[in-house]
Write a protein that binds this DNA or RNA. Structure first.
Lengths: 215, 215
DNA sequence: CAGAAAATAGCACGACCGTTCGTTTTATTT
DNA sequence: AAATAAAACGAACGGTCGTGCTATTTTCTG
């Protein structure tokens, strides 16, 4: 249930005040390893055995924490959601409403998507993996993405309210364009290894701002 | 070696004039089934057993035609490349140089990417699957995509030469924007099931044309 | 129509998968 | 320190995977 991205209650570990039992610590360790692995081989490629080896424990030990592979995948998605909040959303919210915040959101998103060496974006790779495969994993993933896109959309609307963007701006249309820039960046930089993709994403964003700029 | 997209020698089956031996016919049948399967479960999810069942023959029978799973994957990519030429590239080349052709390329691309029911785009799903996995499959896939993007780029350059777009248009930048629209369309329509994505892709394209329009 | 060649099937292998179960080790509480 | 609960392990099961190998069938050719 990743429903925050507006109520930052992260790091509220289970137990409500009690000191964390050992199990939850290792569970966090496992999730850390699983998340890193998933960003490399995808959610579908995630195997319990590989996670166990990466976490330095036995297959059954890992399994016991989640009860099924599917639950592990969903947990990984929730973990990614939390980190996305922490590294992209929250820092950007400290910027002033309107253009500064929108720019910060885009910049942090870009960085998260492309710059980091060994972490492909789960939202992007997962979207390609699960576009034809219904089920709880897909639902969890889609929910997370929708929450994030909604936050982005809110930032655009605020730009209109602040008079930073034209009042008749179609926010869904602009969001579509921004989303495309991120996806193209991920594709051309990460898969095709094209140089200059980051600059093009930036320029593309500037072009969009110009297109929808007020006055 | 999918190096055409400029020399349309499709349907030139092996044997140079000789009538096709049975093996090549069933190989084509297998490839057809494999391609359809790959667009649903991805290149990584493609298994010889599943292809065999879909083609109505035994695992080993399928295997014998390719010698390895990897070779099957590469063959699927080549097959997809040829069909992409046939359904996207060649029809568009009948349009007049410049804007008409560029528009046709984009429209056909869009249709191929989103509208068809049971066929996700191999170039997109494959890009997400193999962005961290070097090897011959990734190379074959990336080569195909690069050839297609180069063709698209050529069309943009011709638009400049025809005076349909501003002479100082950065074609790589414009291509980046177009590519992003296609990727966003695929993502939002196919994965998130958002309505209106097709219209937004169209409007995004129009906005780009306006941005780079001559005079 | 015969013989050669190609195509396909059948079977077995080792590897890895997710999952289950009983046991053993480690933490926590009394 | 003893008793209890939680956590982790190790082995095994049934299943699927890709891949060899050997027959058998089909197709082509002289």
């Amino acid at each position: 249930m990743p429903v925050s991205l507006v109520t930052p209650d992260s790091s509220a570990r289970r137990g409500a005040g009690r000191v964390a039992h050992k199990g939850q610590l290792t569970k966090a360790t496992i999730l850390d390893a699983a998340l890193q692995l998933a960003t490399q081989v995808g959610l579908e490629g995630l195997s319990i055995g590989a996670v166990a080896e990466a976490a330095g424990m036995s297959k059954s030990g890992v399994f016991a924490h989640f009860g099924s592979r599917e639950e592990l995948q969903i947990s990984v998605i929730h973990e990614y959601h939390q980190r996305f909040e922490l590294e992209v959303f929250h820092p950007s919210m400290q910027e002033a409403r309107g253009l500064p915040r929108l720019k910060a959101l885009f910049d942090h998103w870009m960085q998260r998507t492309s710059v980091e060496i060994d972490s492909g974006c789960l939202y992007i790779s997962g979207g390609a993996e699960f576009d034809d495969r219904p089920g709880p994993v897909r639902d969890a993933l889609a929910d997370s993405v929708r929450i994030w896109l909604a936050a982005m959309r809110r930032a655009i609307v605020q730009c209109k309210e602040c008079g930073h963007l034209r009042a008749d701006t179609d926010e869904a249309q602009m969001l579509f364009g921004i989303h495309g820039l991120i996806l193209a960046l991920h594709y051309e930089a990460r898969f095709l290894k094209m140089p200059g993709a980051i600059e093009r994403a930036h320029r593309g964003f500037d072009n969009l701002l110009e297109r929808y700029a007020a006055e």
